[in-house]
Amino acid sequence: MYGNAYIDPSLAPNKLTQDEDPIKLAEFEARIAAGDKIEPKDWMPTEYRKQLIRMIEQHAHSEIIGSLPEGTWITRAPGFRRKLALIAKVQDEVGHAQLLYSAAETLGKPREEMINDLISGKSKYSNVFNYPAITWADTAVIAWLIDAGAIVNQLANSKGSYGPYVRALDRICAEESFHLKYGHDNVVYLATGTPKQRQMVQEALTRWWPPIMHFFGPSDKISVHTETLMKWKVKMASNDDMRQTFLNMYVPKIWDLGLVLPDPNLKKNTETGLWEYTEPDWEEFKRVINGDGPCNAERLAVRRQAEEKGRWVRQALLSKDSRYVTPLV
């Protein structure tokens, strides 16, 4: 979830390609323009590799940290069927992390380094998971709308140029469709239920709307770098375009249930066909992504403890003749 490539705006205009062999670069770009996929052992520009590692790794961390707020509710899921479905969803998310870590590994970063960078805070994950799932209705809103956002993002990225990432995303997108249906089912059940249930889902939606609007990241200005990353099919759509796609698909479905979104300015401009909304609070976004959100410390501490407590088991099972090589994927 949230795998958008981030481009440092202070980079010099040709920084992405300046040290590359022009002939190899031209062949590489021609291959991508022709719709070919790039495979792990192929020649690739240093920045292509770097941006992809960062993006896929961040995506993997988001899957694994994202399972924590929902996992909180497994023991208290209302009813056996929902408990089974939630366990299955959480297992899927952890499975997605495994697929994505492997895809990132093919670019040369071992899994241990990614885990270390997550726990030290060097590597980020999707900001939405730094917020708590306070009630059961929060998990319903997450499963429906956060996963819907993730699908918009992942479908775009699944048309990208890097073979292992694309293959992982194809599998992931297929599985996410169950999450979306399950989440929608839960939201509809509450929204069409008793006044108390309706209130519960309305409050959860109100709480989650700002993080949902943050989900795709701040507006990205079209720069030389954005153009290069789009030409390389690393970045597939602008943050604003994906946000528009999401709003267009889901706001009508939310309104259909008689639920209220906490933004009086939210409406579709019939002339431009685009959604208008109050600009999300990007200062809050920056503050939370840099560690100061309600759950950052808890998420990383829980993750760290899982690594620590499992370590002796992994060491006990490790055979002496083990040898790590980069996986094929």
Binding site: R311, Y324, V325
Partner: peptide, 11 residues
């Protein structure tokens, strides 16, 4: 956190 070392995540 004591950092994960090589082969912590096996082959």
């Amino acid at each position: 956190f004591e950092e994960a070392k090589e082969l912590d995540q096996w082959q």
